[in-house]
Structure formats: structure tokens, C-alpha cells
């Protein structure tokens, strides 16, 4: 079995302690959370940090809290916790959809939202969810705390704005009224990375027209929302015809690469197909939420 190269290990007791350890051990020190991205890379010796700072004891970062118009999710929240959260399922079903297809149940017991976002794999599902939900990342470093939009957070494949001596502490999701969201992924086998996946979130105005919409793709060479597809939906009542047009535009905006999971044209096709599907589902859920809201008065 493959074995990591030697390194030193320290376990942080608090965020402050973790920051101090990162500072002390310098550029070749790295944070490990669930470890399910980093440790396999270390075993294959594609990553060789000199120090690992284990933040698994930072229970202060393991929370799901509603605060005003935001849902705050701690960076150490495990995938399983997200999947099983009733609040997440109600407010952001896109995350529940995604969590069902992220890796496998055992990996989900260890993997964290923070770890997934910081790994920034182009085929990573939660990154797309966060982009679509217009989440914000709260990052703490020696200079204090800063809040980043997802477009600021993502710097490209495997690269984020979190500096070596910083830690992602939480992700904040704005809660919109009469909203719905959905995620769908095509994979070669359960537990595999996405061939392509799509996520969408919509919120409806009182009159049932689309007030806000965002569409994102996973593993399709695009790590921001797709404005041209969103534009056709804005201010209109959701219809199948609009979904088809949005799907077409999403496919046109995508820029996938050919690999073992499929050729470019197939992935473009999936961008189209899945965009339509998630829009359909997100709108259905938003309508349901609208009725619920109405009933609640």
C-alpha cells in the first residue's frame, strides 16, 4: 500500500492555535481536516507537506446555525451532517442533492465542507452549490477575518484565495424567500467524480415570476454562474421553453475537456440536459416553498 513521505504532525486546539501553528511551521505546513482529499494525494506523494496541522478538534467550526437571513455552516461540518440536516434540506435542497452523490457514506463521515471547498477540485460538487447559492466564505488569518464571495474565493482548479497561513472558518448562505434549488450529477458509477453536474437556485417573486436565478456547472470548465443562461429566465414565469433555452446557453458557455469520463460533445450535452433538469426541479421546489410560505402567512 502507498505510504506518505515523512512529515511532522500537530493537533490544533482552537482556530487561534491552528493559525499560530501554521505561522510557526511556515510555508510547508498544511491544514488537514477530514483528510480524504489530502491523504490520498500524500500517499501517492503528489503532496508532501512537512507539517500537518490537524484541525479535527476544532468543534467550534462544526455547526449549522440560522442567523437572520443567513445560514452559517462551520467549515468542519462533515458531509454526513449536511446530508442529514433537515434545515439544509428545507432551505437549500441543492446541498442535500449534492451530498447524496458526494463520494460514499463512509467518506462522508470524515470529509468536511471546508476541506472540499479548499481542495477546489474542478469536479467537486459543493463548490458548485456554493457558487449557485451565492455563498460567502469566512476566512481567518493572522490579520483577522475576511469575507469572500465565491468568485473571490475560487482562483482556479485546486487553487483558492485562502493563504497558507489562513483557515476557512465558515460558509454563509443567504436565505431567500420563495426559493428552490437542485443539483444533478452524472457519474460513471456511484461514488465517482462527476462526468458533469449542474446546480440551480431560483427565487420567485410574489407573482410567480423568477426574481433571482443562478446556474452553475461542475466538471465543465466553468467555475462561475452562467449569466447568459440566467438572463433568459429573469422576470419571467418558469416554462419548459425557457429551461430549454437556458440549457442551450449553459452548454454553450461550458468549456469541458475530454477525458475517460467522456468526450467534449457529451459533456456539453450533459451541461444542457442537466441544466434543464435542475431548473425544472428548482422551480418546482420554489413553487412548493411559495405555497408553504403563503400558508404560513
Amino acid at each position: 500500500m502507498q505510504i506518505p513521505a515523512p512529515f511532522d504532525y500537530a493537533r490544533a486546539t482552537s482556530v487561534e492555535d491552528a493559525l499560530a501553528l501554521l505561522d510557526r511551521h511556515g510555508p510547508e505546513s498544511r491544514v488537514v481536516a477530514g483528510g480524504h482529499s489530502l491523504l490520498p494525494m500524500m500517499r501517492l506523494r503528489l503532496a508532501r507537506p512537512e507539517w500537518l496541522i490537524d484541525i479535527n478538534d476544532l468543534y467550534e467550526l462544526d455547526f449549522i446555525l440560522r442567523e437572520g437571513d443567513y445560514l452559517r455552516v462551520g467549515a468542519m461540518t462533515r458531509h454526513t451532517t449536511l446530508l442529514e440536516s433537515a434545515e439544509i434540506a428545507r432551505l437549500f435542497p441543492i446541498i442535500t442533492d449534492a451530498e447524496r452523490v458526494i463520494a460514499d457514506p463512509i467518506v462522508r463521515n470524515r470529509g468536511t465542507i471546508g476541506g472540499s471547498l479548499c481542495q477546489a477540485d474542478p469536479a467537486e460538487d459543493l463548490s458548485t452549490c456554493c457558487v449557485v447559492l451565492r455563498a460567502e466564505a469566512v476566512v481567518r488569518g493572522p490579520g483577522g477575518e475576511r469575507t469572500l464571495s465565491m468568485s473571490e474565493f475560487h482562483r482556479g482548479p485546486y487553487e483558492t484565495a485562502v493563504a497558507q497561513n489562513e483557515i476557512l472558518c465558515e460558509v454563509r448562505f443567504p436565505i431567500l424567500p420563495r426559493s428552490g434549488s437542485a443539483y444533478e450529477k452524472v457519474e460513471r458509477r456511484v461514488g465517482d467524480w462527476a462526468v458533469v453536474a449542474a446546480g440551480a437556485a431560483v427565487s420567485l417573486a410574489e407573482d410567480g415570476t423568477i426574481d433571482d436565478v443562478s446556474i452553475g456547472l461542475t466538471a465543465a470548465g466553468i467555475d462561475h454562474t452562467i449569466a447568459e443562461a440566467e438572463a433568459v429566465l429573469h422576470g419571467k414565469k418558469p416554462t419548459e421553453g425557457l429551461f430549454i433555452e437556458a440549457g442551450r446557453l449553459a452548454a454553450a458557455a461550458s468549456d469541458p475537456i475530454a477525458d475517460q469520463r467522456g468526450p467534449v460533445d457529451y459533456k456539453r450535452h450533459l451541461a444542457d440536459e442537466l441544466t434543464r433538469r435542475v431548473l425544472r426541479q428548482a422551480c418546482a421546489r420554489a413553487l412548493e416553498a411559495r405555497h408553504t410560505t403563503t400558508q404560513e402567512g
Partner: peptide
Amino acid sequence: CTPARVWAAMQ
């Protein structure tokens, strides 16, 4: 018969 190959066959 992966999803990609099945789709290619359909094309």
C-alpha cells in the same frame, strides 16, 4: 456501456 459511450451510440 458507460453513460458517455451509450450517448455516443445514440448519436
